[in-house]
Design a protein around this nucleic acid. Sequence first.
DNA 1: CGATTTTGACCTGCGC
DNA 2: GCGCAGGTCAAAATCG
Length: 226
Amino acid sequence: MFSQSLFEDQDMSSQLGFFSFPPNNYNNMGISTTILPFIGYNQTTLKMIPPSFAPSSHHSLNIDSTPDPRHKEDLTTSLFGGPHLLSLQKSTTNTWVGEVNESINIKRREFDHDHLGVSSIKMKKIKSSRRKVREPRFCFKTMSDVDVLDDGYKWRKYGQKVVKNTQHPRSYYRCTQDNCRVKKRVERLAEDPRMVITTYEGRHVHSPSHDEEDSQASSQLNNILW
DNA sequence: CGATTTTGACCTGCGC
DNA sequence: GCGCAGGTCAAAATCG
């Protein structure tokens, strides 16, 4: 699967990107899910993906994104329409090459900075911090009463923090499995407390724990994610 | 009593 | 260099 192969690249300094991820299983559980459509690197949100390249509402995933309060109001506006951007990588010629899912076929396209909406100033920012290796991350938001959704893995809370300009604290969780360094953080959207933003960081080195008989939706989700 | 959560202190990165 | 904000640690409290 396309998303799986992209996750193989642990060197996050070499790419920014989106890839496919259908969280329809959450919908099966009665939870609506939306992927946050913006490029981010090293905790710096660079620019929204322009609407023409925005992923569809249920088929994309940001590898390395950080919910940025300054851009939250934009997040839901560019979710629909346009080709489905699967991946985005910087080429040796200082241009960006993306893979776009157009009518089933996957095509390669070159984008310049303007098309990507990434300014040259911000590009310098990327270069200066490129050497820092970061675990793969992605985030998505769900409409849910419960903060921590059952994703099949066992998590232990290790911190909670009140984030500036938000009334809801952000919670930090680590996978309880030995040698597994996967983390996730959970927070509620300030503008709409019904929405939960979940950010995963890292890859599990094990399969999900099925203490009790997990729902089929949960196990399907895990297959897709990891 | 072990596992988990809570929470204040501490650490670190970043912007100015 | 300093201050701020986010992320992590770890001791104490709580839970099952």
